[in-house]
Each structure stands twice: as C-alpha cells, then as structure tokens.
Nucleic acid binder design. Structure first.
Length: 547
RNA sequence: GCGCCCGUAGCUCAGUGGAUCAGAGUAUUGGCCUCCGAAGCCAAGGGUCGUGGGUUCGAAUCCCGCCGGGCGCGCCA
C-alpha cells in the first residue's frame, strides 16, 4: 500500500523548511485540503506562520520552500508546488497518486475511514438517561441519535467505547409517578380532588394503572405501584430504543448509588476535606471555589440530598471504572449541572482533570405540525413521542435527520415534512446513490473482488479526480467528527459524496464497452459505495442495495 | 438583572481557533429518460453573514457594545 500523500508531503515540507529557515526550529506543519479545488489537493500556510514569527517576507519564504530539492524526489507523487496568494504553498497530486485511494478503499472495505488510535482510551458515552416517568419524546430521540453516532465515531478511531444509560429511579418525581398511577387506578382524573399536586397527566398513566389492576396489584401498596410503573416504562423505553436501533452496554441506577453507600461516601469525603459548611439547617458545598456563582445545597434541611450529589457519586464511579474520556450527551436545559458536578469532582481531589467529563449539550427540538408548534409538556401529556416519529417517517429518516444538525443549533422538526414528503429527506438521496451503485454492479455481474486490483489509469476525467479526492477526505472527516463530537459533519459529507456521484453517473456511463475503462469506473463506483455504507453505518442508518 | 448557547438566501441549515470562494438543500422558473435506477441530473434568479465599533495586510469567523431568540438562574430533577 502506498504511503498516505498527506504524511509524505508533511515530512517533505518539514525537510524543506529546515533547509530554508533553520532558525524556525521545529514547527507544526499545517496541511489542509483547500476548499477550492482550483487551489490543488493540499495546501500549507506554514510559510505565513513562520514568516510572521521571523519577520521575513512570507511569499519569498514560500518561493524558497517550493524550490527546495526535496520535491524532485517526489516527482512521481506530486507536481512541483506552487506559491499562491499571500504565501500559501499549494500541491497538486499526480493522477496516479490521487486515484490510489480507490484501491485503498476496496482493500480496507468496512474498515475504510477507521483508524487505529496511537493511544487507545477507555471512553464512555452516556446518553438518553431518561427518567422512567414517561415515554421517550423527540428530545430523547435527538439524544439517542447523537449519542449513538458519537459513540460509533469515537470507536471508529480505535478507542474502546461503552454506551451507558443512567436513570433516576430514586427521586421525588418517581414518587409523583407512583402517586399518579395510584390516583388513576382509583378513578381520579387530573384536577379532581385527590389528584397529586405535581401529578403526571399523560394518557400513558391511565394505561399503567389499567395494567397494574389487571395484574392484580394492591392499590394501597405505593412501593409496589412504584416498582410496577418504573418497570412498565423502562420496558416501553427499551422497545422504542430497539426500534430506533440504539443499544446500551450498561444501565446504571441512581438507587444503586444510595444502596451501595456511594452517595454517603462522597458526602463524607467532601466534609472531611473541608469543602462544605452548615447553614440554615442544610449542608452546603463550596462550589464557588470552582467557578460557580453561588454555593449549592448538598443536603437539604429534611435530610435528603439534592440531585447533583448522586450525580457526583456516579461520576466518581465512572472515573474509578477507568474511563479517561467521558462524554455526556444532555439537553441544554441541564447546562447548569456541569459546573456543579465538576466542582464536586474537583473538590474531592482524586486526580480527575478539570475539564472531565465532557458535555455535548443539544438545544431543544421544536416540533412543528400543521404550521404550529407542538408544545412538549410531560405533565400535560401532550407531546410527540419518539415512537410517533419512527412510525411516521421510518427509523433511517429520523436518525439521519436528527443527527444532521449541529447539536447546539436550534432545531425545528417539521412533522408534516416528515409525514408527507418523506422522499425529500436527504437520507434517501444518500441511500439512493448506494442502491444505484449496487444495481450497476449487479448488472455487471462479475465478482466485485476483482475490482480491488483493477488498473486505474483509464480514469482521466475531472469528475473522476473529484470523486477520488472526496473519497480520500473520509478518514479525516471521521477523525475530526470524533474529536469534536460532531456527527453532523458525517451527514454533510455523505450528502456531498452522493451528490458528486449522482452528477458523475448522469454525465458518464459506467458499463462501457471497453473493458479496462469499464473496470476502472466500476472500481471507482464500488469505492464510493463502500464509503457511503461505512458512513451510514456510523450514523445508524441502513445502506440498502435496493429501495 | 446574571450566566451559557444561538442570529448566514423566502424556508431548513452547513461553514465560525483569520488569509483560498458566502455555500447546500428546499421553494420558484426553464431544460434532460430509444441509453447502467428520473427517489436522479443540468441551468437561472435569490443574502451589505442581526447591528455598530475594534484588532489585522486580511473578519461570517477573534474582541467589545447593542438588538432579537432559546435555555438556565430552587433546600425541583
């Protein structure tokens, strides 16, 4: 396998720099793909950076770098570099070097784009973590799609990833749920005498009450009602997640933290470290020492703990389990917890880095239907569930759509668009390219394995070079998306790759008479198909052969 | 009032640790199936990148003010 052009260029550039500007010392060589293809395949701004530091003329330095002797030895890979603009050094790869990626894709297959981490880490992605007080709604769907894709991306870079779901089964809200079910079972409706103050009004509560009665449950036993309701809703949530293609490795329970004494342990540690004080009958944590705008209550006057205390205990557990990188995917309405949890962890001084854990906060999903916004209110019970979305638009479309926007961007999910115009969803566009290529390969009828060695020299068209260039970018797209927890970059990449293929397909025929050209084009198409499939898989979307 | 996030084409959104493009989809208009899948392709029109300053050779991108929107600001979770 030929060496990666980027690495070759980077090393050669470093050598040229050492020759022309030894006083620059060791400098990071920035090499990137120009957005504008007219500027070549690779471009470096190293002359601009170094010149600014040394007080030299950037364009002149760039000229000297271009004239360095090293390029002559790389003549079979790259054309002589060119200076452009204020001092960029631009590279244009030789056609053969550019097309070589096709063989690489076909050789690596499902692994193409994946990387072997120099230092594999134990990574946990915690997401969804919905409390068992109701069905999963659209916001949970966004979180499930995001979290699963982020986990897959990080795993693709060679790290060991665990998907974890944490649920709060110990708080006041669970008690409210139990009281609501009990009330419904007694025939009490919201607003009527006997209805709990913060009761859950959704229809699903009626269903749980009915099921509890059918199972012969004792209405007076609130603890039994609670267990039944939690189990019922957990089962429903699991079914929805399964239908969405999301699976977790570990489920953690808040109640277990109490049962195992982890919460008490953390409180004691904080007290003995002098990070707390008593005031107004409550126990406070000095979170202001760690950037919070005021101290926070840990133990209320009634003796119970506030919600973030078990959360700190939970994260101590994550750290002790060896997760050096933890990504928590949460709605932006929880952003204030970040400071508190990190403050608690820092106050314990057990070696946890200041920025640990990482958080990916996503904005709320606004659902629009019939031109009007559907308010999401769990208490009122009127909201769009994840199950609804899957039923309307299908799993692939929902997952692709929910993951194709930046997490922190506002998000409008137009139900009518998903319902009535499913064919306009970009996911079909990408899948269509995959199916189209599959169809061409089937029509060709020979063994695709042969294509892995097909000579590529016949690929002389500009469009073919563009496709090869796009294919070569895939590994970098994945690496960056994984580092930045930005799966939407993959969705946009796939959209673009599909677009370039459709364009090529319409302009040129693949199954031409001439055998050498035919097989070269088939190899290119097969490489595109493989890359599309690899990208879709990371997003949890299927890559159909027919549709 | 304070904190975090956001403001880019009619609409939905990319690009945002400077230089080398203001872009995609959609909508509108006009073309392309005797030929590998028309769920496709080609083309046109459409934006002083919320606004006013600042830094720089260069700002959608960085800094400050303002306007507009979202989310938080509880001994709720």
């Amino acid at each position: 396998m030929p060496r990666d052009p980027k690495t070759v260029l980077s090393e050669a550039l470093a050598e040229a720099l050492a020759g022309e500007a030894p006083e620059a010392g060791r400098t990071a060589i920035g090499l990137e793909r120009p957005k504008n293809a007219a500027h070549g395949d690779w471009s470096s701004n190293v002359a601009l950076q170094v010149a600014a530091r040394l007080g030299r003329n950037p364009r002149e330095l760039a000229q000297k770098l271009c004239a360095a002797p090293v390029w002559a030895s790389l003549a079979d890979i790259v054309e002589p570099p060119q200076v452009a603009g204020p001092g960029f050094v631009n590279f244009r790869l030789r056609p053969a070097a550019k097309l070589a990626v096709i063989h690489r894709v076909l050789a690596e297959g499902e692994r193409y784009g994946h990387a072997r981490a120099a230092k594999p880490e134990k990574v946990m992605v915690e997401f969804v973590s919905a409390n068992p007080t109701g069905p999963l709604h659209v916001g949970h769907g966004r979180q499930a799609a995001l979290g699963d894709a982020i986990a897959a991306l990080i795993a693709s870079q060679g790290h060991e990833v665990t998907r974890e779901f944490y649920y709060n089964d110990a708080g006041a809200q669970i008690r409210n749920l139990a009281l609501s079910v009990q009330a419904r079972a007694r025939g009490i409706a919201p607003g009527e005498p006997g209805w709990p103050a913060d009761g859950y009004q959704g229809e699903y509560v009626v269903e749980i009450a009915r099921a509890y009665a059918a199972a012969g449950g004792d209405l007076e036993d609130l603890e039994a009602v609670r267990r039944f309701a939690v189990a019922y809703l957990r089962r429903e949530q699991d079914e929805d997640l399964r239908a969405f293609g999301v699976a977790f490795d570990v489920y953690s329970l808040e109640s277990a933290l109490y049962a195992e004494g982890k919460v008490e342990e953390v409180v004691q540690a904080l007290v003995s470290r002098g990070k707390t004080y008593e005031k107004d009958g409550a126990l406070w944590l000095r979170t202001t020492d760690y950037g919070d705008d005021k101290d926070r209550v840990m133990r209320k006057a009634d003796g119970s703990y506030t919600y973030f205390v078990p959360d700190v205990a939970y994260h101590v557990g994550k750290w002790r389990r060896g997760y050096t990188r933890v990504v928590n995917v949460q709605g932006s309405d929880h952003h204030s917890t970040i400071t508190r949890v990190r403050a608690g962890l820092q106050a314990l001084a057990i070696g946890i880095p200041a920025g640990w854990p990482e958080y990916v906060l996503h904005s709320m999903v606004r659902v629009v239907r019939g031109g009007e916004e559907v308010k999401i209110s769990k208490r009122a019970g009127a909201y769009v569930t994840l199950r609804d979305l899957i039923d309307w638009a299908g799993r692939d479309a929902v997952r692709f759509f929910l993951v194709s926007r930046r997490p922190d961007a506002d998000f409008v999910f137009d139900v009518d668009l998903a319902l009535a115009r499913t064919e306009d969803n970009p996911v079909y566009y990408v899948q269509y390219a995959h199916a189209r290529i599959s169809s061409v390969l089937a029509q060709w009828g020979e063994d695709p394995a042969r294509l892995a060695a097909a000579p590529l020299a016949p690929l002389a068209l500009a469009r073919e070079a563009v496709l090869a260039r796009e294919l070569a970018a895939f590994p970098e797209v994945l690496a960056q998306a994984a580092a930045e927890c930005a799966p939407h970059a993959v969705a946009f990449y796939l959209r673009n790759l599909a677009s370039e293929f459709h364009s090529y397909y319409n302009a040129e025929r693949i199954l031409v008479e001439e055998r050498a050209l035919r097989e070269a084009r088939l190899a290119l198409a097969a490489a595109v198909r493989q890359t599309l499939a690899n990208g879709l898989r990371l997003l949890g979307v299927s890559a159909p052969e027919k549709m």
